[in-house]
């Protein structure tokens, strides 16, 4: 009888113990053998599809590197811009490798690593738009990808102008089409993406317009807010990518240029 009791107590303690020492996300990823990365695939050259419609791009390679370092298989989950944070919240992805700006507003909802990439913004516009400076854009119709850092910023600016309008689109492609077809006069876009778009030769009437005086937009890997173990791992991973030269190598591969610094000035992160 007492044996039975002891056994019952032992089993229940085991059960309780196992729930108390809950495995975190990092453990889950390693034990599941798969890393699910949310990547935006209409944002070349960060993410797109090649001629066979397989995912390619900087973010895809970055995810593959991360999976390799964890010793698991990468799984690219296509995620649209406005869907990135919902995808994390609904546990469709383990990590978003999707050019996510580390805004304080977002940090209330998700957890960010240190920056893994940095963007400068320019206006994408048509040759004959007459927009030669950021000042010229005042009062014009401006587009951007809905839900992004630059969209939030641009919408604020357009409101402060008191003239012109702002339009948010669901993807980079829709935004480019909107400029090309004249739905908007210009879009606030990432300079490297604009360069790639014009380089594709598919949009002969578009040019890279003036630089926009926004502060450098640092983008980070995003995970669920409470996953400190994973965030810690990601921070070290990003650091290693830079110091092993892999970051510069990938940048060269996709942008044919020197990689921008990821240092945020005279402040600790």
């Amino acid at each position: 009888m007492s044996m039975k009791y002891a056994l019952a107590i032992g089993v229940s303690m085991l059960v309780l113990g196992s729930t108390a020492a809950k495995a975190d996300k990092l453990d889950d990823i390693i034990s599941s053998g798969t890393l699910r990365c949310g990547v935006v695939l209409d944002f070349p050259p960060m993410g797109s599809r090649d001629g066979n419609n397989n995912p390619v791009g900087f973010d895809v390679d970055y995810c593959n590197d991360l999976a390799k370092s964890l010793g698991v298989a990468p799984e690219i989950v296509e995620t649209q811009f406005p869907d990135r944070i919902p995808a994390l919240m609904s546990d469709r992805v383990d990590v978003v490798v999707g050019s996510t700006s580390d805004t304080l507003e977002r940090a209330k909802t998700v957890g960010f690593s240190i920056p893994y990439f940095a963007f400068e913004y320019v206006l994408l516009t048509k040759k004959d738009s007459g927009i030669n400076s950021w000042e010229d854009a005042k009062g014009k119709n401006i587009g951007a990808i809905s839900g992004t850092f630059e969209a939030v910023q641009a919408e604020k600016d357009v409101k402060s102008w008191g003239a012109g309008s702002f339009k948010g689109y669901q993807s980079q492609n829709d935004t480019i089409l909107a400029v090309d077809q004249g739905h908007v006069d210009a879009s606030v876009s990432v300079s490297s993406v604009v360069a790639a778009t014009i380089g594709s030769g598919k949009f002969p009437s578009l040019i890279m317009g003036p630089k926009i005086p926004y502060p450098t937009d640092y983008v980070a890997l995003a995970v669920a807010r409470e996953e400190y173990g994973l965030i810690n791992y990601l921070n070290l991973f990003i650091n290693q990518q830079v110091r092993t030269g892999r970051y510069a190598e990938l940048y060269k591969k996709y942008f044919s240029a020197e990689a921008p610094s990821l240092m945020t000035g005279a402040v600790y992160r």
Binding site: L41, D42, P44, S48, R49, G51, N53, V77, E78, T79, Q80, D83, A87, R92, S171, Q172, N173, D174, L177, D180, K202, F203
Partner: peptide, 19 residues
């Protein structure tokens, strides 16, 4: 809208490349 790649979405995807 919730991230499933169906017919319409594949069309948008392809259009990203060939415009």
């Amino acid at each position: 809208w919730i991230g499933i790649i169906e017919l319409l979405r594949t069309a948008q995807q392809i259009n990203t490349r060939i415009n």
